[in-house]
């Protein structure tokens, strides 16, 4: 399964957010690693539910900072957050039907989203913060 690889250039410059990024990535990795081919549906659903909650919590913190800093692209950034939260719930629903569930695909999906989000929206926020300071 593809895990999310943390890289230092994902750092955006907000201490709380950066700290939680790392925590979040390691927690998601741990949860994904725990999902093997033999994992029961309830465990998968619980793990995804937890990932959903933790990601939502992290996004809330990041959105608070963007709002407080009057970040111009905050709405666009938030939309990307909301897209992922929508996706995770849709994934949870597919797990309710075990035949449709593909752990590899889930790992890839999360990894792609995070990597893409770090490289685009978070990188843009980082550049904005650097320019601002």
């Amino acid at each position: 399964m593809t895990l999310i690889a943390w890289r230092e250039d994902f750092t955006i410059g907000l201490p709380d957010v950066d700290y939680e990024h790392r925590e979040l990535v390691s927690m998601i990795n741990a949860l994904l690693e725990s999902l093997g081919p033999d994992t029961g549906v309830p465990q998968i659903v619980a793990a995804l539910g937890e990932i959903h909650a933790r990601i939502a919590l992290h996004f809330a913190l990041e959105e608070r900072d963007m709002h407080q800093l009057h970040y111009a692209a905050a709405a666009e950034h938030k939309d990307d957050h909301e897209r992922l939260l929508d996706d995770i719930l849709d994934i949870i629903d597919t797990v309710e039907s075990p035949l449709d569930y593909d752990p590899e695909a889930l790992g890839d999906r999360l990894s792609r989203w995070f990597t893409g989000h770090f490289r685009t929206h978070d990188a843009r926020l980082h550049r904005w913060l650097v320019g601002r300071s």
Binding site: V45, A46, G49, H52, A53, L57, A60
Partner: peptide, 16 residues
């Protein structure tokens, strides 16, 4: 609270 989601497992389900 962002963590107040019932999709979590009962063992850890507590909101912030």
């Amino acid at each position: 609270c962002p963590t107040a989601t019932p999709f979590r497992s009962a063992s850890v389900f507590a909101a912030g």
